[in-house]
Every structure is written in C-alpha cells, then in structure tokens.
C-alpha cells in the first residue's frame, strides 16, 4: 500500500496533486468501468430479446416455469442490501467506524443470502431437468430447442450476475477488514464510495433480470 508521504492518514498517491483530484479520478474510473459492464450485459440482453422475439410462446411457457417467489424474495434482499450499502457510505462520510462495519456486514449477509437462494434455485433446475443438455425437458412445449435456448440464456445471465455478486462479496469482505484496521476516515473514504457504486450497479442488473426472466408473459404461459 502506498505510504502516507503527503499526510498523516490520507492515502494520496504520488501521481495526484490533491485528494480531490484523486477522488474525482477514482469515481470517474468506476463510472467508466460500470459503462463497460453495461455493454457487457447489454450483449446478453440483446441476444435474449432477439430470441424472445423469435419464440414468444416457448419463452412464455419457460418463463412461467420459474419460481417467481424466490425471484421476488431475492429482489427484496438485494434492494435491502443497497439500502444498507448507502448507510455504510453515509457512515463513512461521518467517519463512524463501528457503524460502517455494522452496515457493511449487513450488506455482506444480504449478498450471501442472495447467492444462497440462487444456488438453491439452480439446484431445483437440475432436479427438474431444466438444465440445457441431453437430459433437458420442459413440459408444455413440443420443441425443446428454443426452450433450451431460454434456459441457456437464464443460466448465462444469472450466472454472470452471480459472479459479479461473488466479486462484490469479496470486495465487501476486504472493506470490512480494512475499515476494522482503520484505513478509512471522514477524509478518505473513496474505496467505500466506489464499492457502493459497484454494489448498486449489480443490484440494478438484477432489477432488469428479474422481470425479463421471471415475470414477462406469465399470463401467456
């Protein structure tokens, strides 16, 4: 880690002139990273939309086979975690170390809860033969091909989202340890700030995934 050559507790890196410049740069960097993430998921959303347009009936049947209750619960879990993340960022601004740790831990627990529910859901898919492959079967459609495409998209999209959640959980763990060690103060809280941005982004992706995969065309199925 960079030494504190320019101040007592402030981690100003040598390429920057001021903390403000450093914070601006970090935040801008995170926003640009999130734009790349949007493009990344965008490719998948596009593929999903194309196929839903090709096979509306199959996608409706496949969508209604999803467990919307777990999906909705997970949506709630993530929304709560965004709230606790905001509280952690606020606590960081006020320099309340214990409260930062409290809310970061809460966020972490909610994140892990989401992943647990997700794992349970995937497991059910295996039992129901809804995993693409030779054993795949979905009731209510006669052509299994497009149904497999739906579930291929489902696993690719939720899998990638879950991977981002795992990364998020890793970041939160690191933040908790760093906060505990007293790295962050009211004057330097950029990592908490930009981790918050990342966490909200992953949350928003789910907000799009949930209706696309679980809710759209339920009435048709």
């Amino acid at each position: 880690m960079a030494s504190d050559a320019h101040g007592e507790t402030l981690a100003l890196r040598e390429q920057f002139d001021s903390e403000e410049q450093q914070k601006d740069a970090s935040t801008l960097g995170m926003w640009i990273f999130l734009i790349t993430e949007i493009m990344f998921f965008g490719g998948m959303f596009l593929a999903y939309s194309v196929y839903r347009n090709f096979y509306p009936h199959v996608f409706a049947v496949a969508s209604s086979s999803m467990n919307a209750i777990i999906g909705a619960t997970n949506t709630g879990v993530l929304l709560c975690s965004s709230f606790t993340m905001v509280m952690a960022v606020r606590a960081a601004q006020l320099g309340q170390r214990k409260i930062i740790i409290l809310f970061l831990v809460l966020t972490l627990i909610l994140g892990i809860a989401f992943l647990g529910l997700k794992a349970y859901e995937w497991n059910v898919k295996f039992e129901e033969h809804h995993v693409p492959g030779p054993a795949f079967h979905l009731d209510g459609v006669d052509t299994q091909g497009p149904a497999q495409i739906f579930f291929s998209m489902y696993f690719a999209m939720t899998g990638l989202h879950a991977l981002h959640m795992v990364v998020g959980v890793g970041i939160l763990t690191w933040l908790i340890i760093a906060t505990y060690k007293g790295r962050f103060t009211a004057g330097y809280m950029t990592p908490v700030d930009i981790a918050g941005l990342y966490w909200h982004f992953v949350d928003i992706i789910w907000i799009f995934l949930f209706p696309l995969l679980y809710l759209i065309d339920r009435h048709l199925g």
Binding site: A47, Y51, F54, Y55, T143, G145, Q148, A156
Partner: peptide, 19 residues
C-alpha cells in the same frame, strides 16, 4: 457465450436448437 456453448453445451447460436 461461445465458450459456454462449447464447454457446457448450452445453445445460444446453435441452429439445431433454433438458435
């Protein structure tokens, strides 16, 4: 997606499945 299609045999671009 290409990677997944080769490794896990899911089908996104596979014409045999209607892709």
């Amino acid at each position: 997606l290409v990677f997944c299609e080769r490794v896990f045999h899911i089908g996104i671009f596979d014409p045999a499945l209607g892709g």
